[in-house]
Design a protein around this nucleic acid. Structure first.
Length: 615
RNA sequence: GCCGACGUAGCUCAAUCGGCAGAGCAACCGCCUUGUAAGUGGUAGGUUAUGGGUUCGAUUCCCAUCGUCGGCUCCA
């Protein structure tokens, strides 16, 4: 999560340092056969759409990760039935083994070919000026204009494509959805209809992809959050505002407890700050200048304007400023789970992932220049430790460096970037460099984790700030008795607790590790005569610190097991006559394993061990 | 905010052409006393998101608002 500005992910400069080698992932994909298949399938789709709507206008249709899309301006809205018929026609075109032929033309010729295609004419004009490619991205050299034709359909395109549609497997393509999209991504320009599709080399790969989509749906934190009674968002309260239910609240508390304990053990001081602050504060910080569109309207308190906080930093800075600081005090690490409010447009909220009020696990480090590299080393290592504790083992780092427009002096930037990169190397984790992708106020490292089905989620961010120390005139008194400017670093490890919870839910599909499970064990008495014994066992487990409940409903054991399975409770302990007699419990696990009868003490040992190991 | 789809009981979903709003699960009250993924009978549950309009009559058709979903845009 970026504190101030864009997450900065320039598609031009995405390089991967891996085992000392620099890999350009984007170029690798674009030169692949799969890329050509997808791009060509997009053209075939455009052909099928134009056959159905001869008066339709075509915009652009690139290959993307996992598939392709094409944008159209059509006389009416597309229906799911349209997609079926278009897909069917596409298979027909593919099976007719059409050739893809490339032809280089002059701008004038191209204009003739596309005389009734206004979007293409606009693209040609752009190419002619040599400013933008067909995706609207700036390019350096004036390109040649090329056309690709397959049968009766011709498109303006840089390529490359397959040579013949027989290279596309008609059973390995599928149209997925239709959605609105602005021409050139500009909301002031016409809204087009975008058809998304996917294409693979074999039907098995397609099946696999569709299975991954299904799996993602099954893990959707909004559905699981409801099924497991973790949280809700209700219309009466407001969009993008989270209600944490007792079980979700329990998990949050467990996360926070762990977080607090680790921070306490690692030199952080805890601070608490209010939810609103005066307009002048946000003027000084600059937020009213460059962040205003994300802030809510002010509230009037006795004639003074106050704003809901979109960030915690100005408050932490004032705690720093509350007394004169000596170089001996540094580094200072202030941490707070600070709830912030940011305006989100109505169409963009998404469960826990994108909300209007959220709690950052925020901290600010203030340190001397000589401490700075060590401070970065520490915070990077600490981040990785925290993320790994929650079961995220696959972590990727992204280093963003100085953009063209920036504040602070170049030496600061160089030193900070070097410290970040050195730390990454020392940690030995893979990282990519987004050159020029940093915020104007400082370079940063973002950490992304891979979840159980391979999706990447950005959680941590570690950002230098050369801006706020200036604006708030932060100082410490050095050994020389003179005031010096400290380095300031923002960092959030989990990002926002809401979003982190959402990622956790999807990563584990609701089957949280035992240490995070709101209910760790449920006791299942088979008949009423076993209830007293169940409570006795429950007492023993509670004494051992295990969260336990007794399912004494007058239901069949089978029903209780089913419910416990659906609630993803880690340990089911069945209790009948045999167990009662031998002071045992019969253990069943949520993965359907059935270890069977064991003594209560043996179970407690196993459970404590699982909790300790965070599995 | 924009494009499209959608909003019926706590949940999942029905309701023909505009003609008495229904089922399963959950809840509640019973019966059954159970050995590894749903035992059984009954009861209750609704201003069909909200507000207007058309109509003899609206869950159904029209408009607006709120919200949800898929995207765009924005961004954490």
């Amino acid at each position: 999560m970026s504190f101030y500005s864009r997450p900065s992910f320039g598609r031009e400069c995405l390089f991967n340092y891996f085992g000392g080698r620099m890999i350009d992932k984007k170029a690798e994909y674009e030169s692949s056969k799969l890329y050509r298949i997808r791009h060509s399938t997009a053209h075939i789709m455009a052909q099928a759409v134009l056959e159905k709507f001869p008066e339709g206008k075509v915009a652009i249709g690139p290959a993307i990760d996992d598939g392709f899309y094409y944008d159209f301006d059509l006389p009416r809205a597309l229906t799911p039935e349209d997609l079926e018929s278009i897909e069917k026609r596409m298979r027909g075109i593919i099976q007719s083994k059409v050739k893809f032929e490339r032809k280089v033309v002059s701008a004038d010729e191209a204009k003739k070919v596309f005389h009734d295609q206004p979007f293409k004419l606009e693209l040609i004009a752009g190419l002619e000026e040599g400013k933008e490619d067909e995706d609207g991205n700036p390019i350096l050299e004036k390109p040649e204009i090329s056309l690709y034709s397959q049968g009766a359909f011709t498109d303006l395109c840089r390529g490359p494509h397959v040579d013949n549609s027989s290279e596309i497997n008609p059973q390995a393509i599928k149209l997925l959805s239709v959605a609105g999209a602005y021409w050139r991504g500009d909301e002031k320009r016409p809204m087009l209809q975008r058809i998304y599709g996917t294409a693979w080399t074999t039907p098995d790969e397609l099946k696999d992809y569709l299975w991954r989509m299904e799996e993602a749906k099954r893990r959707d934190h909004r559905k699981i959050g409801h099924d497991l009674d973790l949280f809700s968002i209700v219309e009466e309260v407001g969009a993008g505002l989270i209600l944490w239910h007792p079980k979700g609240g329990k998990i949050r508390k467990l996360i926070e407890n762990f977080w607090t304990q680790e921070h306490e053990a690692n030199g952080y001081d805890f601070v608490f700050t209010p939810h609103i602050g005066k307009a002048q504060l946000w003027e000084t910080s600059g937020h009213l200048g460059f962040y205003k569109e994300n802030m809510y309207s002010p509230v009037d308190i006795e004639g003074q304007q106050y704003f809901l906080k979109p960030m915690n930093c100005p408050f932490h800075i004032h705690i720093y400023k509350s007394s004169l600081r000596s170089y001996r005090e540094l580094p200072i690490r202030y941490a707070e789970e600070g709830t912030v409010y940011r305006y989100e447009r109505s169409g963009v909220m998404h469960g826990l992932m994108r909300v209007r009020g959220f709690t950052q696990d925020d901290a600010h480090h203030f340190c001397r220049p000589d401490q700075m590299p060590g401070e970065i080393d520490f915070v990077l290592g600490f981040s990785l430790h925290i993320l790994r504790s929650f079961g995220f083992k696959d972590i990727q780092a992204y280093l963003s460096t100085k953009p063209e427009k920036s504040v602070g002096n170049p030496e600061q930037w160089t030193a900070a970037e070097k410290a970040l990169e050195d730390s990454l190397k020392r940690e030995g984790i893979d990282y990519q460099v987004d050159k020029g992708g940093g915020a104007f106020y400082g370079p940063k490292i973002d950490l992304k984790v891979k979840d159980a089905i391979g999706r990447e989620w950005q959680l941590s961010t570690i950002q230098f700030d050369f801006n706020l120390p200036e604006r708030f005139d932060l100082n410490y008194i050095g050994e020389d008795g003179l005031p010096h400017r400290p380095y300031m670093v923002h960092r959030a490890l989990l990002g926002s607790l809401e979003r982190f919870f959402g990622v956790l839910i999807e990563h584990y599909a609701g089957a949280f590790p035992v240490w995070l499970s709101p209910i760790q064990a449920t006791l299942i008495p088979i008949a009423d005569r076993h209830i007293d014994y169940a409570y006795k066992v429950a007492g023993d487990l509670k004494k051992a610190g295990i969260r336990v409940n007794v399912d004494e409903r007058p239901e069949r054991m089978n029903a209780k097991i089913r419910d416990a399975q659906n609630q993803k409770i880690p340990y089911m302990l069945v209790i009948g006559d045999k167990e009662m007699e031998n002071n045992e419990v019969a253990l069943r696990l949520r993965n359907n394993e059935n270890p069977g009868p064991m003594s209560v003490t043996a179970f407690i040992e196993q459970a404590k061990d699982d909790i300790e190991k965070k599995i």
